[in-house]
Design a protein around this nucleic acid. Sequence first.
DNA 1: GCCAACGTTGGC
DNA 2: GCCAACGTTGGC
Length: 161
Amino acid sequence: MAYWLFKSEPEVYGFDHLLAETDRTTGWDGVRNYQARNFLRDSIKVGDGVLFYHSNADPAGIAGIAEVVRAGHPDPTAFDPESEHHDPKSDPASPTWYQVSIRAVKAIDPPLGLPRLKEISELADMELLRKGSRLSVQPVTEREWKVIMALAGGKPKKKQR
DNA sequence: GCCAACGTTGGC
DNA sequence: GCCAACGTTGGC
């Protein structure tokens, strides 16, 4: 069991889109970065937790929780000439690009905004918060996951301000 | 819209 | 293999 953060622009595909899918499930296609591809192909397993992050958004932040329901398999959009993610260089016999399938678990509404996340000292080392970080599929530690779950639970705390 | 940070491409 | 040019990401 491991934890991940997936980025998406909500104007393109937000957590609401995932909730609207059949069985709240979709293939996470279109990833065209090798480091992210390696996670999708090799590391992400059924049952892993996913933080659904809205980038280029107002507000930018974690908008939902999902779970992995299918491990890495070839991304069909790479072979589809109609797809904007088509990659003619990818050979179906030895695919370049992979996807996993995820299912929505629950929305975080309102999202956990980026400024809020930056305030949490236990999250200071998150890949997401590193300056210049662009990785669209990234690992999250168990500790970070638990902290975020607690924040997402929305329970009032004494120290809240 | 700006621009820093990053990844990829291609000439050499 | 080096690295400049270019395109993209993503916060602000």
